[in-house]
Design a binder for these strands. Structure first.
Lengths: 208, 208, 208, 208
DNA sequence: AATGAATGAGACTTCATTCAT
DNA sequence: TATGAATGAAGTCTCATTCAT
């Protein structure tokens, strides 16, 4: 591997991996706290205690760093969802488990929620956001479609519903985490119930 | 009155009001298109065809301009909602009309949706956002509470539900307007229905 | 008198004279307090309660305003000196009275001292300062020369001595007025004595 | 160490020190020539042939630069005085040597004299000036007090006299250096003599 | 691998001055 | 005469990025 390979396709040593992770972690909190633009690269490297050169060794630019953070987050969210629905078979149950895991994850990662909001506002990042959203919506829509096909719920626009579900998760994460409000399990239950009712159309089902 | 009076408490002539509006309108589109930070004040004044000084005659800073845009937007949204539910009495109907008007407004103002997303990411704006959200949520929660009190829907956390409703509107505005996807009336219907089901808990009610 | 005559050769009505004086007085305190450049024309007109147009009706520029203040001050200082030595005939006595009046005047006009200091630092004003100093030094040097010619003091460079005398006055005004220190008559006496000794060369003379 | 360490506590390389000195030297001449405010930072960096960023690497602001110049000058002046009176023991002789060295230094640094004059006119610098003056006056007053205690001169206000002495030096530096007039050794002799007479009170002493 | 000095375009903002009203 | 909206050059300062060491 050549020393002058670009930051993206560099094979990292363990120490390298740690450094990279530290930079990403610190940047994430700073970006979330102060915003992307108000956070200078120098603050990030200072916070981690390395020189500026290190930063540009691991990331080709500040933009690229944000993109990496965002991609990692999406990967982590989906991994969580997949883990949550593993074993379940009933589409409605899959839906519920998915919603619950998304909600939990979002609430546990308020910084990411902020970063995502920001990313939507500048085209160089929005492109990635669109792709990410398509994936997330598809994941949810798949369960809804399956439920429709199985006759469990009436026919309808699965993607619109999936979008609505996604909106509820994000909004609650924002309201209760970002806004600084308290948040307990009952809120999650209310939200999950709200979504299931919205999709399924009756309130007889009780969440597990 | 005085020359050094701050831009905020300046009495404007008709022409002045127009100039100010033009600046806000142009800035809104630019901020939405390129992002807040990437849009330079010089681009805004160039776009409107005035000197850089006028900008600071009307707004004390670029930040202040965004805040003004955001406040105006909130005022307009609420005015729309109030107009929509005027005459209606049944809380559920008020809720429905409110949701529909919010959804419509959000879809008609995708730029504002972007600006709001950005505003949440930097503390100097987020403060205002929190206040705005509190207001909007209260507006919706009021209807839900009334419905609960009237026994029309089962008891529950009205604010959480209002938040969920708000999330659906925002998300759809983003998904279908910002993301560039198409959006037609059937989508709005699906969304309204989703929200009502989520709140009311059964699908027997059909939206108008 | 044409309406478009330049500000300098305009004949002023009583009200006009008052306005002009008010502007100069207010500007003097502001310039002394905050400095020339940090004081904006808008602050001056606001402070006096007039529009910007008025300012440029009376003064062709901010620089011109300062120049006017400075010239007025010099005129006032010399008028004071002349009044003080009126009637005296002995050159040494004239010198003493002149020193005392200069000292008193300087201490009573600390703002002017500041303005003069500033004026020396920018060429467009320094030119005037050089002229003014030449005049003031000549006034003092004249007495010293007369004393030399009369054999009252030994021959020497009268201008250098006059300069030294001037330096003592200015410095004391700065030290005790600008620096905020207290200043009483005994200080003035010490200073006058210092100067007389410096010029005359013996301490037998006692100041009045 | 850290990249965002403030320019004040940065350890400089030899090249860095040189650059910093070059910036200060060039700024000093420009400030003295055109004035502080009329001299733009861009002129300074252009004059030295560096990018605008280096300026802010070495100085946190234009104000800070002036303060640094002023402090260095004071340090240099005092170093010169201490060197001049080294070995002397007689307080009157110390006084004389001190006056002579101050006068010489002031005349050799007319730019600094201008900068100091300016500095007195704006509060953010005046604070430093007051402190500096206190120090310089004390240095001189110490010798005068010692002379009084030793009965070499009559009792009196040593600080006022020291101030007067200081005034003579400054004024001469201004008159003969800044004003563009000629200045030779005889002027210095006249001035030294003037001061000694002023303090000591008789003309029998002849300066060395 | 790492550092941090250096770059310089460009950001936001101020303000002396003009001029239509 | 008087006002204050408008101008726009110029000012100070920031910061992503590069590169010699």
């Amino acid at each position: 591997m050549s020393v002058t390979s670009s930051p993206n396709d560099r094979t990292l040593t363990t120490r390298g991996k740690d450094r990279r992770d530290a930079l990403m972690a610190f940047a994430t909190t700073q970006f979330a706290e102060k915003g992307f633009h108000p956070t200078a690269v120098s603050e990030i490297v200072d916070g981690v205690g390395v020189g500026k050169g290190v930063f540009y060794w691991y990331f080709s630019s500040k933009d690229e760093l944000l993109l990496n953070i965002l991609r990692d987050a999406l990967r982590d969210l989906r991994r969580n969802q997949n883990r949550a629905i593993r074993g379940a078979d009933d589409p409605i149950q899959c839906l519920e488990l998915g919603i619950r895991s998304t909600l939990t994850w979002s609430i546990e990662h308020p910084e990411v929620i902020r970063l995502v909001m920001f990313a939507w506002t500048e085209e160089q990042f929005a492109k990635d956001m669109r792709r990410g959203r398509r994936i997330v919506i598809s994941d949810t829509a798949r369960h809804i479609s399956r439920a429709m096909d199985a006759g469990l719920i009436e026919q309808g626009d699965a993607r619109v519903m999936a979008t609505a579900v996604r909106g509820v998760s994000d909004e609650l994460a924002r309201q209760f985490a970002i806004s600084g409000d308290l948040l307990d399990d009952s809120v999650i239950e209310t939200a999950v119930r709200f979504c299931l009712r919205g999709v399924v159309g009756d309130s007889t089902r009780t969440p597990t």
